[in-house]
Amino acid sequence: MLIKTLLITTLTLSSLLAMTGQEIAQKVHDRDDGDNSIATMKMTLIDKNDNKRVRELKTFTKDKGEDKLKLMFFLTPADVKNTAFLTYDYEDSSKDDDQWLYLPELQKVKRIASSDKSSSFMGSDFTYSDMTSRNVSDYTYEIMKEPVVKGHKTWQMLVTPKSEKTIEETGYTKSIVFVRQDNFVIIQALNYIKAGNKLKYMMVNDLQLIDGVWTALEMQMVTKKGKKTLHKTIFEFSNYKYNQDLDESLFTTRTLQRGL
């Protein structure tokens, strides 16, 4: 029995040791990120003078084959309440995502055409590209080292876009990501921004296993120029539930107009 355990452990370790950056990225991509989820998201925006703005959103997510459908409603503050955002995030990177925005003061659903995903997501330090999955084949991966981050062994990888098009779309010239070796979750990432010589530090502050799915319940993104913090955003998720009875018809412009 002991020999068998040792053998399995050795085989597993050697398998892990043999993994390339590309294989790790594929594992990260293929990791089960849950389906039919509902959550409440608190978005805290903090400027360089420590002034805080807080937005609360209700989020709904559903897988449609390889594609992902996402629906978000702003709950607070009052001036953006009922603003809603619908995304069809297509796995096929050659196909542009479908996006619609509902602005309650206009009472109009407006399609957004943006293959450029480098814009700020609702005023946060996260961009639209941070909120959608990246295509593994659009990047090269180089394992730099295997540091321990917050008690967990990680792969530290340099991720470089293969094309100028990907750089234009994401706004990042390269990233250094830290992937936990036990669950293939990116727990830290340093993104190099194309414009303005700025850096963005993403950190997962609270990662928990919910219904068998590793879920980031708190994450933050800090934008820095040199050592100076320019702005930061904290996302906190609560009431995270998977496997809810979400019909595909929820993820339509009809829902944007009807509201919650």
Partner: peptide
């Protein structure tokens, strides 16, 4: 910023409402 950061607990939590 956050006092309740208890590291990255690996224990599964229930999703009871």
């Amino acid at each position: 910023l956050s006092d309740d950061l208890d590291g990255f607990g690996e224990e599964s939590i229930s999703s009871e409402p």
